[in-house]
Design a protein around this nucleic acid. Structure first.
Length: 415
RNA sequence: GGCGCGUUGGUCAAGCGGUUAAGACACCGCCCUUUCACGGCGGCUUCAUGGGUUCGAAUCCCAUACGCGUCACCA
């Protein structure tokens, strides 16, 4: 098992939005694969037709590219385990679902989802079709009645699985519902497609959010039904956001800029974002270094450094890391980047932009701070004459009025 | 509510039975600097609570509290 090549995957649904938590999941998967000389796979989970967003796949590709998280196999790149888009793998899921029905691990369910079955524990209806006589099933099929295929859960006992971060986790089987594997529209559910694809694509390590912990036993049971090897699970703690009242909750749009794209627009450098996000829930252990290139992250990455408790997203720290990248940057590059955020400049500022930008380099945490930093040069607000009072240098407003014009002359000569 | 996961400073965190409980961000102060920054130095504040186990516990066990997740023909 240890000699198997490590293969991790990032499996987003195409929503057109790369949440920072998702980016981190992708990053860790990538870092682990690369640190083990393994492969990182991008797979698109588009089994919910109602949520499909046009161009979302392009968006995911572009985002990963900007973040320098480069898949070895993907819808765009192809690979030996394709197709890498679930909607193109439909036949596969049906075949495997039917196989489970035959082996007695799943069954057809003809219940109407619109009907109210809220009486029982799992909505009450999901087990009524468990033991339908074969002739009733045949009759439904003959009539062309719509159906779903549900997984048949054990009624007692419990299921245990191992998680790298949390150790053994045991959940009573009585908590497990007969989840839908194949939907009415013939599409697999996420939970089902995941198991099939991860197995077929020979994924060795599954990194995903901790919200999947309680559904993992269902996966385990599926793997066992097929007699497949169970991959290694690593459930990552969520990224939290700070609320106005001081409490924290899972990072979401109401916390402000929380997508990779939002952050880039604000003028945080992609490398800095990646760097910061890597540190949000992971620690290199062997060093106190905090500024890492992607290669360095790969070099230092290890599963042991992953944190099992949630981390709060901190804009201050991101800003500090970003400013470190600015300081390490050469003046020309910064000058050019800052100019894109400067807005329309008066001629005198435009012609002297590079000197001004050099001054800005250590004074700005993100590019979107540029306009407010230079606003006083453009608006030329009235300053309080009291500002010219400086005892130590024996300057008064009157004195300053004498000196300033001379200063202008001096500076002009200097140019 | 059932089940599951989590809990070291304001934030990210190291720590795996014996430490003055690292480091970073933020904050405060000093230095550098006729400004603002950068840089340097220093300070502040932490083991959720209660029981065990042990010569000794942030570290192991059990409760409690709090937080979070989950209980979809969404992922």
């Amino acid at each position: 098992m240890t000699d198997k090549k490590v293969r991790t995957r990032f499996a987003p649904s195409p929503t057109g939005y790369m949440h920072i938590g998702n980016l981190r999941t992708a990053l860790y998967g990538y870092l682990y694969a690369k640190s083990q000389k393994g492969d990182f796979i991008l797979r698109i989970e588009d089994t919910d037709r109602t949520r499909y967003v046009a161009d979302a796949v392009d968006f995911i590709n572009r985002t990963l590219e900007m973040a320098h998280i480069i898949p070895d196999e993907s819808p765009a790149l192809g690979g030996n385990y394709g197709p890498y888009v679930q909607s193109e793998r439909m036949d596969l899921y049906r075949k495997y679902a039917e196989e489970l029905v035959k082996s007695g691990h799943a069954y057809y369910c003809f219940c109407d989802p619109e009907e109210d079955h809220s009486a029982g524990k799992f909505g009450g209806y999901d087990r009524t079709c468990r033991d339908l006589p074969q002739d009733v099933i045949d009759e439904h099929i003959k009539n062309g009645d719509p159906y779903v295929i549900r997984q048949k859960m054990p009624l007692d006992g419990d299921t245990t699985f191992f998680d790298v971060l949390h150790g053994n986790i045991t959940i009573p089987n009585s908590e497990l519902e007969d989840q839908v594997l194949l939907k009415r529209d013939g599409m697999p559910t996420y939970n089902f497609a995941n198991v099939i694809d991860d197995h077929l694509m020979e994924i060795t390590h599954i990194m995903r959010g901790a919200e999947f912990i309680t559904s993992t036993p269902k996966y385990i049971l599926l793997y066992q039904s097929y007699g497949w090897d169970v991959p290694t699970f690593i459930h990552l703690a969520p990224v939290m956001g700070k609320n106005e009242d001081g409490s924290v909750s899972k990072l979401s749009k109401r916390h402000g800029a929380t997508s990779f794209d939002d952050l880039v627009k604000l003028g945080y450098l992609p490398e800095a974002i990646t760097n910061y996000v890597a540190l949000l829930g992971w620690n290199p252990k062997t060093t106190n270094q905090e500024i890492f290139s992607m290669d360095e992250l790969i070099e230092h990455f290890s599963l042991e450094g992953l944190s099992k408790s949630p981390a709060v997203f901190d804009y201050d720290k991101l800003g500090w890391i970003n400013s470190e990248y600015f300081k390490a940057m050469d003046d020309e590059t910064f000058t050019k980047l800052a100019h894109e955020y400067a807005g329309t400049l008066p001629d005198c500022l435009e012609t002297n932009w590079s000197s001004l930008a050099t001054l800005l380099k250590t004074r700005v945490q993100r590019l979107s701070d540029v306009p407010s930093e230079i606003a006083f040069l453009i608006d030329l607000p009235a300053f309080d004459a009291d500002l010219y009072n400086n005892k130590r240098n024996k300057v008064t407003p009157e004195k300053a009025a004498e000196i300033m014009p001379k200063l202008v002359d001096l500076l002009e000569q200097d140019r």
